[in-house]
Design a protein around this nucleic acid. Structure first.
Lengths: 140, 140
DNA sequence: CGGCATCCGAGTAGATACTG
DNA sequence: CAGTATCTACTCGGATGCCG
């Protein structure tokens, strides 16, 4: 892993202060972490957004097969929330049988670009997490 | 919001494929999204990591006051998990009264650098999410 | 096909009290 | 001070059945 310099740490702290100016107040009407991130960085949401970034258009059951252990209920809930927040769009085709296509909006693509940085980090460092967990188990 | 070009979308799809090569398999022993991200991108985890990125060292009750609505139980659980995965370190001082200091490890700092990109995005675009949500409410 | 409605069980969060 | 213990409440996820 790349070592982090003290300078970088200071830079990061400044960014946090700038972004999170309300860091010390508790009368926050709308916290971006609690209210935006908690939905968008949910395990299922991440997978949905990634799959829609990979396959530009997906139907409900296709998506469900890719995310191979999500239930109808949970998938449809997440899709509704993600649609509500503007990350994905839902196109209904009134055919028989009915067809529904999900895809990312531009807003969703914008989010995905940032999200990808994080998931790439996780993929790259998953080995470290695994061994950290094992060590921690032993030490207790 | 910046418009996303088709080229960028293709680039992103390639990145996803590279990172998420198992995108179509279902016999995944350890999924970085499900197993790493779901802990590290949890609402409370994000807040803990951000506060520890801003204040290099924090004691239990200080941290709890900053994250102004987390219970003892949940905070101590998350701290243990984050410690177990290697993001934070816990230093115990056997004084009276006892003192425990939490801080980010280098691994935690590495994660924070990427995480910050995402939270900055969320802070910048929270207005869009709010209005998207309002529009969606009306349309239903 | 693409969901929604319903029910149920398990896990998780919160409040409070207590302790080394 | 830094948690743990306990209990309760509630949310969440999974399974099933149904319908346009």
């Amino acid at each position: 892993m790349e070592t982090i310099t003290e300078n970088q740490k200071i830079k990061v702290a400044k960014k946090i202060k700038k972004m999170f100016g309300h860091v010390d107040r508790r009368n926050i009407e709308f916290c971006p972490i609690r209210d935006v991130m908690s939905l968008a960085s949910d395990k299922w949401s991440i997978l949905i957004i990634l799959y829609l970034g990979y396959y530009p258009v997906l139907r409900f059951n296709k998506l469900r097969k890719h995310i191979y252990d999500i239930s109808n209920k949970v998938l449809s809930e997440r899709l509704k929330m993600l649609e509500g927040d503007g990350y994905i769009s839902r196109k209904l085709f009134a055919e028989v049988p009915i067809r529904v296509e999900y895809s990312l909006t531009d807003f969703g693509h914008s989010y995905l670009q940032k999200l990808l940085e994080l998931t790439e980090w996780a993929e790259k460092h998953k080995g470290t997490v695994i061994s950290n967990r094992a060590d921690y188990q032993k030490s207790t």
